[in-house]
Design a protein around this nucleic acid. Structure first.
Length: 267
DNA sequence: AACTTCTCCAACCGCAGCTAT
DNA sequence: GATAGCTGCGGTTGGAGAAGT
């Protein structure tokens, strides 16, 4: 479909934001709230395109952002979530209050990837290097809900996984957080996938994967109590197939968030 | 001190998905 | 159903600063 450029490129600034621009943007959003990014730059008197404003706000100016280094706990969580979700940075970010998808993506590419590689683990498949291809072929046995269950109750995994994949092993110290993910979710393919339908559906998953205090307790922008949302929703699944839960965005029509899982499809 | 290489992260780009008409 | 417009996402890039020679 035809698409007009998101902004009038000839009259927009690019590159690093100045302090003044930041202040304008913050002031405008404080006064009018988020949204309407397309018209925001003009209204706020900024020579930026709406996308740029949104990005700046989301990744840098939002008051609830947590700055500073990632903790080992966060490391561990990111690795585990990546094992399930693949490169779904926004979904992963949703489980780490105060962190942005961009930040997590960068952190993954600069730190975690290297960390996994140094341990002989393929960062994409979360399997030992060299074993990814064959493992992937056999991997469909790893159903999404099982992985999700592993996240929730790591000790409840019936089959003893290879030591390298021990789940929920507390990260002893710097760079020793172990890899917990095991399903291979190739990025780009949407990371989607699903549970084998023979397995029990994720029963009322109360997935609070947030680090630290529960999301409801955190004094961040998430301090607005978030409705309980099943991981299936966050995985892009929609009600009825992999999960019977009815949690969904109230704003969305019905439960249009469902993507049927195909035979052998897995997360 | 000067230069080169490396690392990190903010920002950009293009596309997908959703809604409205 | 087709088209247009907007938002959000994920991959990639460019530049500043750090580290190495």
């Amino acid at each position: 479909m035809g698409r007009s450029p998101c902004c009038e490129k000839a009259h927009t600034n690019k590159g690093a934001w100045t302090k003044e621009e930041d202040e304008r943007l913050v002031a405008y959003i404080r006064a009018h709230g988020e949204g309407c990014w397309r018209s925001l730059p003009k209204a706020a008197g900024l020579l930026r395109c709406g996308k740029s404003c949104r990005l700046r706000w989301m990744n840098y100016l939002r008051p609830d952002l947590k700055r500073g280094n990632f903790t080992d706990e966060e490391d561990e969580l990111i690795i585990r979530l990546h094992g399930i979700l693949g490169n779904k940075w926004s979904l992963i970010a949703g489980q780490l209050p105060g962190r942005t998808d961009n930040e997590i993506k960068n952190y993954w590419n600069t730190h975690i990837k290297r960390k996994l590689l140094s341990r002989g683990i393929d960062p994409q498949t979360h399997r030992p290097l060299g074993a990814a291809a064959t493992a992937d072929a056999a991997a469909p046995g790893v159903a999404a809900h099982r992985v999700a269950a592993a996240l929730l109750h790591p000790t409840a995994i019936p089959a003893s996984p290879p030591a390298k994949f021990a789940v929920n092993k507390p990260a002893p110290a710097e760079s020793s957080s172990d890899d917990g993910g095991r399903s291979s979710t190739s990025s780009g393919s949407g990371g989607g996938g699903g549970a084998s339908t023979a397995e029990p559906r994720c029963p009322d998953l109360n997935l609070d994967l947030s680090v630290g205090p529960s999301a409801a307790d955190t004094p961040t922008s998430h301090s607005q109590p978030r409705p309980p949302v099943c991981l299936c929703y966050r995985l892009g699944l929609r009600a009825g197939e992999a999960c019977g839960c009815q949690a969904d965005k109230p704003s969305q029509k019905g439960f249009g968030y469902f993507r049927p899982l195909e035979q052998g499809q897995y997360i």
